[in-house]
């Protein structure tokens, strides 16, 4: 039997309408225990509306070497940002 309970990543939603944000991790044997542990560890000061937990090993992530090919093409598409477009002076709300 594995010596350590698996690691879970904890995401909290602290405001109505806000996204879940990564808060940290906990060890737990199963999802219910992970939720309870997350609640006790990361929500003990209150103000939490919802918790997600996901086993760390289930997360797929980009690797640092992806840095260039994965993200730079996006950075170069300036036309996706409003500053790319010019609007006559004095016009508001555009």
């Amino acid at each position: 039997m594995n010596a350590t309970e698996p690691l879970w990543e904890v995401f909290l939603r602290e405001k109505q309408g806000a996204p879940h944000e990564h808060a940290g991790s906990v060890h737990a044997a199963d999802a219910e225990q992970a939720l309870q542990n997350a609640r006790d560890v990361y929500a003990r000061r209150g103000r939490v509306l919802s918790i997600w937990v996901v086993q760390t090993s289930e997360i797929a992530a980009t690797s640092p070497s992806d840095d260039g090919p994965f993200f730079e093409p996006g950075n170069e598409k300036a036309y996706r940002h409003p500053q790319f477009y010019s609007v006559p002076r004095g016009i508001k709300g555009v």
Binding site: M1, N2, E5, A28, A29, D30, Q33
Partner: peptide, 13 residues
């Protein structure tokens, strides 16, 4: 206690 929690999780799965 930790062993029990893991065994129970495995059974449930």
């Amino acid at each position: 206690v930790r062993e029990a929690a893991r065994a129970y999780a495995a059974k449930k799965q």
